[in-house]
C-alpha cells in the first residue's frame, strides 16, 4: 500500500511526514498563546486546539509506521479531550 510513489523518489510516507511536521509547527505556535495568553480561557482553548491537532498527528503516525494501534489511541484521545474541556468549563 505504501510502495506507490508520487514523483520518482518521493513516496507517500514523505508527504505524511511533511504534514506531521506542519502540524507540529502549528502546535508550537498555538502553545505560545497557551503560555502567554491573558486569562484562563485562552489557555483552555489552547489545550483544546493542541489536542485537536494531536489527533490528526496520531493518525498520521499510524499511517507512517503502518501500525493500526494508533487509531484506537487517537479515538481515545478525542474522547478524553472532549471530556477534559467540558469538565474545565463546568468548574
Amino acid at each position: 500500500m505504501a510502495s506507490a510513489e508520487l514523483f520518482g523518489t518521493i513516496g507517500m510516507v514523505d508527504v505524511f511526514l511533511a504534514m506531521a511536521l506542519l502540524i507540529v509547527i502549528a502546535s508550537f505556535v498555538s502553545l505560545y498563546r497557551g503560555i502567554e495568553g491573558p486569562g484562563i480561557f485562552n489557555r483552555i482553548i489552547a489545550v483544546n486546539v493542541i489536542g485537536t491537532k494531536t489527533i490528526v498527528l496520531l493518525v498520521l503516525i499510524g499511517f507512517i509506521y503502518e501500525r493500526p494501534d494508533f487509531f484506537d489511541i487517537a479515538l481515545l484521545y478525542a474522547i478524553l479531550n472532549f471530556i477534559m474541556t467540558i469538565a474545565a468549563t463546568r468548574y
Binding site: F41, I44, I45, N48, T52, I55, V59, F71, A74, L75, A78, I79, N81, F82, T85, I86, T89, R90
Partner: peptide, 19 residues
C-alpha cells in the same frame, strides 16, 4: 473519529464561550 470530532468540537467550543 471524524463523526465524533464533528459532534464534539463545536460542543466544546460552545461550552467554552458560554462559560
Amino acid at each position: 473519529l471524524i463523526m465524533f470530532i464533528l459532534l464534539a468540537n463545536p460542543t466544546s467550543t460552545h461550552a467554552i464561550a458560554k462559560a
